[in-house]
Design a binder for these strands. Structure first.
Ligand SMILES: [Zn+2]
Ligand SMILES: [Zn+2]
Ligand SMILES: [Zn+2]
Ligand SMILES: [Zn+2]
Lengths: 138, 138
DNA sequence: TCTTGAACCTCTAGTCACTAGAGATTGTAG
DNA sequence: CTACAATCTCTAGTGACTAGAGGTTCAAGA
């Protein structure tokens, strides 16, 4: 049994974040000492590691809630898990696509001005003022 | 002179968002009718288009505030504008880098399970439980 | 056993860029 | 003149935390 601080150190999840996850129902309510402090065991550590890893991969709290629900029922079909992973993947791909378009425009915009001129003639400002300068929709 | 609804239609920025931008100081306080409704002119339209375009490119409100400040002083050096654009570009590149790592892992994870099995044996859940399955840091 | 101070507790509020809704007032077409 | 869509202000909610106030508990050293 160890404290919330120790759990934090082991998982690299900040203490207030751990309490937040408990509030959100991601972590079961921890056992408490007689003085009302949280105590965790190996199961708590593993669950939080799972959450941490899923968050690092960009899954939402809501998605993680479903995944944990599933994890707690080993006999259920894992279809939902795959669905969630696939949908997360397509979200990520969408974001990459969008960011690549932005990268293109921002590269052009940045290159267009050396920062030595005056606001009035600035290519950055002109480009922002008029989307016609852009090569793509974004 | 046109109403906030008309401005909204022309810029594709929602009415409450326009009011929000005014509140944040991005838009000058609009003129008002005797009945207190906002009225805009060409200048207002252009400014909002600028804001919209910058937001589409991912600039923060704070960054846009600096850019607008600069735009209002045509004689100033445009160094800040380039700095902001360059920093935005590097933000975008960072994000792309990170998302590509996620894409890799998520592809592997998604492929590892067809959703036909049972939670206990699910590769998706196992991968989330243990970062050791991963090929990269993320 | 006592003391000190780091770690813990709860609660509220702030972040960013909006979005939603309530309840009241205004503008405008028929 | 009447309807009613559009506008107004104000408050609160979103997601995933983060910060801070003010109070309590734990554990190590004297
Ligand atoms: Zn410039
Ligand atoms: Zn553009
Ligand atoms: Zn599976
Ligand atoms: Zn991993």
């Amino acid at each position: 049994m160890f404290s919330i601080g120790e759990l934090s150190r082991r998982t690299k999840v900040k203490v207030p974040t751990i309490r937040y996850y408990e509030e959100m129902g991601l972590l079961a309510e921890a056992e408490r000492t007689s003085g009302n402090q949280r105590r965790y065991d190996k199961a708590g550590l593993e669950r939080l590691s799972f959450i941490r890893h899923a968050r690092d991969l960009g899954f939402s709290i809501e998605a993680i809630l479903s995944l944990i629900e599933l994890q707690d029922h080993p006999d259920r079909s894992c279809e939902t898990a795959t669905d969630i992973a696939v949908s997360q993947l397509s979200d990520v791909r969408e974001k990459i696509k969008r960011l690549k378009l932005l990268e293109k425009e921002l590269t052009r915009i940045s290159k267009g001005c050396d920062g030595l001129g005056v606001s009035e003639d600035c290519y950055v400002l002109a480009s922002l003022a008029d989307h016609e300068h852009c090569e793509n929709e974004h």
